[in-house]
Nucleic acid binder design. Structure first.
Length: 709
DNA sequence: CGGCGTACG
DNA sequence: CGTA
DNA sequence: GCCG
């Protein structure tokens, strides 16, 4: 089980090759999480019943990503040491009469590395020996009973592993010094003993209870347990603690970030400078350019010359046909004009911090149009031909290009330089990057409160922050400066999928967001979970799942956990409220959880330890739970990018008079549901999404071509 | 000159 | 108001 | 800031 890593499909390399045009293909990242994935190995020596042969893999035409089959296909044979090949146990079922475990404290079995058969047999044998047996895998995610157990049997070899497996079961312990007498162990109800399965085999072999001493792997003392496992929120540190913590963490984190992100510290040096905006003066970016009729701007000779070279270039369709909406053109992740786009992104951010929503929209539109342009831009007049780009964009390009025609890396725009140097911009940006702090609040911190650094926020404002803002601050560096490598995103998705499937077999998942659009590194993990049986997606399953993940330590903080939206357009299954119409089919709803995540498996390649402590970076993970009735729209709605999503809604409204949201498509007038996103039989999640897109009258562009910035 | 995605807690 |  |  510690081989999750190698089993993860790092690249989505299993492509579903079909005869679609190239741009419509994408790797299938979703797949059934086979119900038969649990523990399919013919494993334990205790497994009397002969389960032989390799684990059967769930075979679906498109599926590749069954965490289970993947995990179990990675054949690391169970530690061969303990692997006597006694498929014919003399004991079959039932324990010998003189083998009584009556005096043992409540016993439980750690299922890891045990086949279902082995697990089953063990359970039967133990109860036959009158053990006070606690079942470890109640099918419904109820772990209440497990807390009774004090004696665990498992195929475990190291104390660290034992503690990890216990935590997965919701039992939180810290290791106790060796040398605790066994009497003390039995008598102290706070102590947990983990013993190798071999011990029980020995007992069976000798027809009597044997000394456990040689088989003890771990003795631990029960601890508080995790944050939130019982619905309690983890106590956040005080301001003072956080300041210290930040100091200690910063160096390490930034070092690592440089390693991960290629060595650039994204924070700029502080240069005391003039304000970056002066209301009512003419120094704002917008007014810097006194070009009233930019379309008539005279071209320099060199620009004219460059342009002649472009004459034979075939302009892309969206330019020829002036298609304005991002849903009508492909946007690759990288394009020849990325450098200029970055300039526009800086201006867009400055507009964001000025609460200029319309400016944001305008720059987003221009950025996406340029992102779709397949050639290097060489003249401002070419830019004028792109939809969403006009005088201002063109003027910006003109200044930018001519500031250094021969060296792209040296090009700049004066107004943008000033933005980047201004304290106001830099500090507000820093605040804005706190999860839970928007532009308005960032401005308030800077302008009203007068704060100038994160330390100011912590020192002077800690108690005024919302809980999620405190969490956002606590993990500020990890969230903002340590991107998640693609393989780790895949690993997190697979793990969530696996745990979901363990709770209720039959779950499938797909990782959406930037990962699905092909990004090599992600800021967070977005995923859609779905079950073909609608019943299985109800009944607070997401809460159950998140609770389990908390118990096992993966989820360290829950930022948001709720039904029916909250953020975004998550409300599903019933018409938008504005229509005021009841919906017959009952309330199917999309559930969504936003959490902080941390790797817990010491064997994972993403696990980092320092001084015996887990210092793996915390990650932001969003989990969307969709009923089968709207999984197509959910996947489409959660894949993005932002401008694609906005234009999708505009198109649906304009073309059909419908309203799109990730929970479905609705008729405007009647409020009736347009049946588009249901999960059809024999269809995978990607095919389902495609049906929605085509049903809306759109060309299907694969997610890698929806990078609208 | 109005409109620009969108709903929710 | 912040989020996706 | 750009579109209709």
């Amino acid at each position: 089980m510690q081989r999750y890593d190698s089993a993860i499909d790092m690249t989505g390399s299993d492509r579903d090759e079909d005869e679609l045009p190239e741009h419509t293909k994408e790797p299938t990242v979703a797949g059934p999480i086979g119900p038969h994935m649990h523990h399919k190995r013919p494993l334990s020596p205790v497994a009397a019943s002969s389960s032989s042969g390799p684990p059967s893999r769930s075979a679906s035409p498109h599926s590749v990503h069954s965490p289970h089959s993947a995990i179990h296909s990675t054949d690391s044979p169970p530690n061969s040491a303990g692997h006597h090949d006694n498929t014919t146990s003399p004991h079959d079922l039932g324990a010998p009469l003189d083998l009584s475990l009556l005096s043992l404290p409540p016993v439980a079995v750690i299922p890891t590395r045990l086949s279902p058969e082995a697990l089953h047999d063990l359970h039967e044998q133990l109860s036959a020996a009158n053990a006070d047996l606690v079942t470890t895998f109640p099918s419904d995610g109820q772990t209440a009973d497990i807390h009774r157990a004090r004696f665990f049997l498992g195929q475990i070899n190291t104390p660290k592993r034992a503690a990890f497996e216990l935590r997965k079961l919701g039992v939180h312990t810290e290791e106790v010094e060796a040398g605790t007498s066994r009497e003390a162990v039995w008598q102290d109800d706070g102590l947990i003993t983990v013993v190798k399965v071999e011990w029980w085999e020995k007992c069976l072999e000798k027809d009597g209870v044997q000394s456990i001493n040689p088989y003890i792997v771990y003795v631990g003392r029960l601890t508080e347990g995790p944050p939130g496992g019982d619905g309690k929120k983890r106590a956040l540190p005080s301001a003072e603690e956080l300041v210290k913590e930040r100091e200690m963490k910063r160096r390490r984190i930034l070092e690592r970030a440089q390693g991960d992100a290629g060595g650039s510290d994204s924070r700029v040096k502080v240069i005391p400078g003039k304000p970056w905006t002066k209301p009512n003066t003419t120094t704002s970016v917008d007014e810097e350019f006194g070009v009233k009729r930019p379309k008539l701007m005279r071209k320099t000779t060199s620009e004219y010359e460059r342009e002649k070279g472009l004459a034979n270039q075939v302009q892309p369709r969206y330019v020829r046909e002036q298609l304005k909406l991002a849903v009508h053109r492909p946007h690759p992740l990288h394009c020849p004009n990325d450098a200029f786009i970055n300039v526009l992104k800086t201006i867009k951010l400055s507009r964001t911090l000025q609460l200029d929503d319309i400016g944001i929209r305008a720059y987003s539109t221009a950025i996406s149009a340029i992102q779709a342009y397949p050639y290097e831009l060489l003249s401002s007049s070419t830019l004028l031909t792109l939809p969403g780009c006009d005088g201002k964009t063109s003027a910006l390009f003109y200044e930018w290009y001519n500031s250094s025609p021969d060296d792209v890396s040296q090009r700049k725009i004066q107004a943008v330089e000033e933005i980047e140097q201004s304290e106001e911009y830099r500090v507000m940006k820093e605040f804005y990057q706190i999860w839970g702090v928007g532009a308005k609040t960032a401005r308030e911190f800077y302008l009203d409160k007068g704060w100038r650094s994160l330390d100011d926020v912590i020192e002077f404002g800690w108690n005024q922050l919302s809980r999620v803002q405190q969490i956002g601050l606590k993990f500020y560096d990890e969230i903002n400066f340590i991107p998640i490598p693609r393989p780790e995103v895949a690993r997190i998705g697979a793990l969530v999928g696996k745990v979901a499937d363990e709770l209720r077999p039959g779950y499938e998942y797909i990782i959406t967001g930037g990962y699905r659009r092909g990004k090599e590194q992600s800021g967070d993990v977005d995923m859609v979970l779905c079950h073909r049986d609608e019943e299985q997606t109800r009944g607070g399953f997401l809460t159950m799942l998140v609770t389990r993940l908390e118990e096992e330590g993966w989820v360290t903080h829950t930022l948001y956990l709720g039904r029916g939206g909250g953020f975004g357009t998550q409300r599903v299954g019933e018409p938008p409220r504005s229509h005021g119409l009841a919906h017959g089919e009952g309330a199917e709803e999309l559930e969504k959880a936003m959490v902080m995540w941390q790797e817990q498996d010491p064997a994972s390649p993403f696990y980092k330890e320092e001084g015996g402590r887990n210092v793996s970076p915390h990650r932001r993970v969003d989990i969307i739970l969709s009923p089968p009735s709207c999984v197509g729209t959910a996947v489409l709605g959660w894949t993005g990018g932002t401008t694609y999503e906005r234009d999708l809604r505009r198109w649906v409204e304009k073309r059909w008079g419908w309203k799109f949201d990730s929970g479905g498509v609705w008729e405007r007038g009647s409020g009736r549901r347009v049946e588009l996103g249901e999960w059809a039989e024999g269809e995978d999640l990607v095919q389902c999404e495609r049906r929605v897109i085509e049903g809306l009258g759109l060309e299907y562009f694969k997610p890698e071509l929806r990078n609208t910035g």
